[in-house]
């Protein structure tokens, strides 16, 4: 063998760049707008971004957007919080106690794959046509993934750290609060990313029945009326909601998990 040895390492290490992410979205939207202007897309059934923006502006101006958004945000906040708190409690129980471990996971495995949308008619009978059934849909959709995720996160806390706590005779509560909880926090927070998206996805299903207001109900009604501008405006709002929530969780992670560096 003779000659220069060629470089063959590198790669397999993608670096995040928020700027590139934003630029991609902007280029996509610009391309869409151009295609509409040029007449490559049927304006009738796929409106241009400009028209969606105008629809959005009108909704914001008339106050309709804020009424729908207010109703949906309230449901999201209550439904997600209920599902998350209950899911965290059961998840910790499953992760910490033999007594809860197998029974808890059996129940979760049996009920998690059920499409919550299919249960909406039942929820109406159980919780009524008002806010109850909507919040139940969201809470249940959030509950099961939270249990699975939390139990996994608790299980992943290094046992060595727990033994260390015991070797210094820390109380059970101290071990849970100061070792298990912070150790499971990264996993729990990344679970929040998933469950918050699930909640936004389920919003449309939750607001299918008996909702006068709400972004989900608005999107459904615009769809029924083939009001494509408003339909897409509603979808843009849902998507922005998802972006904001993801950003908020990212911020929370940076705050709470600064020790990871």
């Amino acid at each position: 063998m003779r000659g220069r040895v060629a470089f063959r390492g590198g790669g397999f290490a993608p670096r995040p760049s928020p700027l590139a992410g934003a630029a991609t979205l902007i280029v996509l939207i610009a391309f869409w707008q151009t295609a509409s202007w040029a007449g490559w897309l049927p304006r009738l059934f796929l409106p241009a971004p400009r028209e969606i923006a105008i629809a959005l502006y009108r909704l914001a101006l008339s106050g309709e957007l804020w009424r729908h958004l207010g109703a949906s945000l309230g449901r999201l906040a209550i439904g997600w919080s209920l599902g998350t708190v209950a899911g965290l409690l059961l998840g910790f129980a499953v992760g910490l106690f033999t007594l809860a471990c197998s029974p808890g996971m059996a129940v979760v495995s049996a009920f998690f794959p059920i499409p919550k949308i299919a249960l909406v008619p039942l929820f109406i009978i159980w919780f009524g046509i008002g806010e109850g059934s909507k919040i139940a849909t969201l809470a249940l959709g959030v509950f099961f993934p939270t249990v699975i995720n939390t139990a996994g996160a608790v299980d992943n806390v290094p046992r060595g750290l727990i033994r260390m706590g015991q070797s210094f005779s820390l109380s059970w509560l101290s071990i849970v609060r100061k070792i298990v909880l912070p150790g499971a926090l990264p996993g729990i927070l990344s679970g929040f990313r998933v469950t918050s998206s699930i909640a936004i996805i389920l919003l449309v299903a939750a607001e299918m029945i008996g909702a006068e207001r709400g972004i989900g109900a608005f999107v459904l009604s615009a769809g029924n009326l083939y009001d494509v501008d408003n339909l897409l405006a509603g979808i843009v709002v849902l998507s922005l909601l998802g972006l904001i929530v993801a950003w908020a969780i990212g911020w929370l992670e940076r705050k709470l998990l600064s020790w990871r560096g």
């Binding site: 750290l161 033994r163 210094f168 820390l170 109380s171 912070p182 150790g183």
Partner: peptide, 20 residues
């Protein structure tokens, strides 16, 4: 393996065993 809590600084890791 030292068994230090990565989410506590040096003083915090020592403080842990005194707090109870």
């Amino acid at each position: 393996d030292f068994a230090l809590l990565p989410w506590r600084d040096v003083a915090g890791n020592i403080s842990l065993v005194l707090e109870d």
